[in-house]
Each structure stands twice: as structure tokens, then as C-alpha cells.
Amino acid sequence: MPDTASAATATQAPPILEVDDLAVHFPVTKGGFFQRQVGAIKAVDGVSFTLRKGETLGLVGESGCGKSTTGLAVLGLSPITRGRVRFEGHDVNHLSGAETLRFRRRAQMVYQDPYGSLNPRMTVEEIVSEPLRIHNHPGGAPVRRKRVAELLDLVGLLPAMAQRYPHEFSGGQRQRIGIARAIALEPDLIVCDESVSALDVSIQAQVVNLFMDLQKQLGLTYIFIAHDLAVVRHISNRVAVMYLGRIVEIADRDDLYDDPKHPYTQALLSAIPVADPVVEASRARVKLTGEVPSVMKPPSGCRFHPRCPHAMPVCKTQDPPLRPLGAGLRSVACHLHDPAIVKGHA
């Protein structure tokens, strides 16, 4: 797990990324030649968080909750409908051409599919050196070749592998190649989009440990998007839980895992299997009923209320904001933690 000293340093560091009321809506059109918009897929709909240098923010939730779209929008790779993304105070969506190029050097992505993200017609040397060539890294081919050898060694691969093609590697090795490409320009921020979900469990652990080692060596900041809550707990300093395009709870890792406050967070954590069969058989489970609502027509009020075991009448009409809870860094979007509403309901 991230050590206490690193977590403390990240907490004290100034924000490197500020996301405020981020929304990404995709229009749904109908008709033939004359297309008209009939709705919108609200993939992300009001997400806010800050990220400090050297910190890892885990982003979790069910498929379709908007995690990956949030990651793409943060990097300026998906047009936003509303809100603002600031990287070191600069609005990512209003950069000039030169500023965008500089931002691309400092913010990179590691994708889910370690094979689909690599060009099968290019050698490893060409793949890893491509960012250096595009961004006019000082020196010619010999300098780039030396840098590729350094990067491969850094991610645990032999420099001699540089002349091979992606199909000659295992899934874990391909992901290491993708990581080498991502760190080639010495970025500050890396978005890891389900970067270990396609790997075997033992290989997942190796790649996650590699991410953590690189963070210590290079001072990297991560947004780590994943389904596996055990992996997220291992690598993250803070965790944000998303449901239907919104963050419903965000807190320090240990606070969230030890004492989840939102009913959806409680349900997710209760689904994690426990190795001890006696404990597994005796522990309480939070079971959710119904299906995940459509992002085109989300429920009124709290989006989680149709599936929430603690739903109150107010949940159907009022959308709870993400508000601070307690003295720590936890924020929760739930009427159960609004004293005025709970008192009135009682």
C-alpha cells in the first residue's frame, strides 16, 4: 500500500489538477438526412475533485458509470459539455496549440487493452520512441535509442527486446511497453484506464507494484480507474466512488474501506470476497435490487434511490449534493447524512 509518508506529502502538496462540475453529454440523434437531437447520454454529469502532486486517486464504480469518460475529459481527449478542468491552474479545454502540446507532454494515459493500444506494425523501439520524435526530443536517433533502452529497463524489460513486435510479448509485457511509452516524456500526471483488468491476477500485482515504484522514482500523479476494489485499495491514497455519472462518495482510502457511508459504497465493498470461509459465510451482504437506470433518462432526485435499501421520500425529489462529512477529507452525496432531512424524516 502507499506508505504513510508519501500520503502525507501528497496531502500537503498543492493541487495539480482541479475538476469542477465536469459534465460530458453525448447527443442522441434521430432521422435520416436531416438529423435532430432527441436526447443525450449523460456519461458524466457534475463531477468535482482535486488531485495533488504525488497522489493516487482511485476511481471506481460499475460499468457505464462514467469513469473512463472522466479520465478522457481530464486529458482533453473528450469534449466537455459543462464545467472546467484545470491543470496547474490552466483550463485544459481552452489551451492554445503550443500550450496543448506542452500539456500533452505532462499528461499521459495507459490504456486497458495492452495489445490494442500498440501498433502491431511497429517495433517496440518505434512505439516507445514515437512520443520523443513527435515532441522533438533533443538529439537524433542514437539519443532516442538510448532513451528507449533506459525506459525498457525502468519498466522491467530487457533493452534487447526493442527490436521485437507487440505480438511477441505476453499481456503483462505489452502493458509494460505501454507504460514505458507513457513515461517517455517524463509526465506529471498519468490516467490509468483499467490498466490491469485484462491481465492475470499474478501479473496484475506485478504491474500495480511497477506503477507504485515508478511513482516513488519519478514523482508521478495517478488517476487509477478500475473495477477491482482490492487493487484500488492497494495503490490509492484516496478513492472516489461513481454512480451514473456522478461521484457519490470520496474519501481517504482507509476511511472509505473501513467505514463506507454511502449505501452504494457499502454495497460495492460488501461484494468483495473474503478469503476466510467462516467470515465469508457469516458477514452481512448489502444486496441491490433492480437494474442500473438509463443514463439518457436518469431518475429524478437521487439517482441511486430506485436501488437504495434506505431510500426516503425526499430521495425521489431532491438530488443530494456532494457535501463534506466530518472533519476529514470525506464527502458524501446522500440524504442519510443530512441532519436536517433525517430529523424531518424521523
Rank of each mutant, 00 (worst) to 15 (best):
A198S: 12
S63H: 05
F304T: 08
T289N: 13
V191E: 02
D113I: 04
I177G: 00
V19M: 05
P15L: 13
H345R: 06
R84N: 05
R246W: 08
K316L: 15
F87H: 07
D338V: 12
D252Y: 00
G290R: 05
R246K: 15
I250Q: 02
D188A: 13
V74T: 10
S170M: 10
I341F: 00
A226P: 06
L268E: 03
I203V: 15
M1E: 13
P339D: 06
R303K: 12
K146M: 11
Y115H: 02
A98T: 14
A107Y: 09
V286P: 05
D213K: 15
L17G: 04
V44W: 00
M1R: 14
G58F: 03
P309D: 12
R303W: 14
F169V: 11
H25M: 05
A311N: 10
L118V: 05
D200Y: 07
A149L: 08
T81A: 08
V148R: 04
E291F: 14
F33C: 01
V248C: 07
R246D: 00
G31S: 01
D45S: 10
V74Y: 02
L269Q: 02
L154T: 12
Y243I: 05
Q318C: 07
V128Y: 07
Y264S: 03
V248R: 10
V44C: 08
V110E: 09
K67M: 08
I183C: 14
L288K: 06
A40K: 06
R133W: 12
